[in-house]
Simulated assay, not measured.
Amino acid sequence: MSLIKRLSATLFARLDGVVSEIEDHEAVVQTSIDELRHQVARARARLNQMQRDEQQLVDRIDRLREDTGRWGERARRCAAEDEARALSCLERRRQCRREAERLQQSLDGCRDGAARLMRDVEEGETRLQLLHQRHTLMRARQCGTAARTAGQETELLREVEACFERWDTRLTERELSLRDIAPEDPLDEGFSRRERDEDLRAELDVLLQQEKKQ
C-alpha cells in the first residue's frame, strides 16, 4: 500500500506541476490566437462589404454612362426643332458625366482600399495558420517533455520493477506447488510410457538399419 501511495503522490505532484506550467504559457498563446482570429474575421467581413460596395459603384457608373449617351442622342434629335430642349439635354448629359467621374474616383479609392485590406487579410490568415501549427507543435513537445520527465523517476521505477519481480516469484512458486501436488493418473502414465517406448524402438530400428548398410 505504501508503494501505491508513493507512486500516486509522485505522479500527481509532477502532473500538477506540468499542468500549471502549461496553463501560463498556453493561456497567453490561446488568447492571442483567439484575438487574431477575431481580428481576421472582422477584416474579412469588412472586405466582403467593400467588395459589395465596389460592385454597386460599378453598376451606378455603368448606368450613368448609359444615361450620358442617351441624353446626347436626345439633344441631337431635338436640336433642329427645339434648341432650348436640346441644351437641357446636354446639361443633363454633363451632370451624368460629372457624377460618373466622381463615382469613378470613389471606385478607384475603394479598389485601392480593398486591395490593401485583402493583403492584410491574407497575411493575417497566414500568420494565424502558422501560430496554430506552432501552438500544436509546442503542446506536443510539452507532452513529450512531461513523458520523458516522468520516465526519469529512476528510484520509483526501480521499486515498481522490484514489485513485478516479487509478484512473478510468488506466482512461480504457486505454479510449482500446484504441479507438485497434482494427482497421478495411472492410465495416462501407462499410455505415456508405452508411447515413449515406441519412439525409442523406432529410433533403435533406424540405428540397426544404418549398421547393416555399413
Rank of each mutant, 00 (worst) to 15 (best):
A80N: 08
C96K: 09
A162C: 07
W71H: 15
E159A: 11
E73D: 09
R158W: 05
M138L: 15
Q142Y: 00
L131M: 15
V160W: 11
G124T: 05
E99D: 12
W167Y: 13
C96Q: 13
T145M: 11
G113S: 14
E155I: 09
R148Y: 14
E83T: 03
T136E: 14
V121D: 04
G113C: 08
A80M: 01
A140Q: 05
G151N: 04
E101S: 13
Q152L: 10
L130P: 00
Q152S: 08
L107M: 10
R139T: 00
A162Q: 09
R119V: 10
C78K: 05
E122T: 15
R111G: 00
R74A: 13
A162R: 10
T169K: 13
L103W: 08
E73M: 07
T136L: 13
A162S: 13
H135G: 07
R102W: 03
H135P: 00
A75S: 10
C96G: 02
L137P: 01
R94L: 14
R98V: 08
S106V: 06
E125S: 13
A80K: 13
E123Y: 05
Q104P: 02
R166P: 00
R94T: 14
R77L: 13
R111F: 03
A140W: 09
A100M: 09
E165W: 06
R94P: 00
W167M: 12
T149V: 11
E101H: 08
G72F: 02
T154P: 04
T149A: 09
E123K: 15
D82N: 14
L137D: 12
E73C: 02
G113T: 10
C78M: 12
E155L: 08
R76Y: 04
A100K: 07
L87N: 15
W167T: 11
L103G: 04
C143M: 08
R139Y: 04
H135I: 00
M118L: 14
R134L: 06
G151K: 02
C143I: 09
A86Q: 06
L130H: 06
L130V: 03
C143G: 05
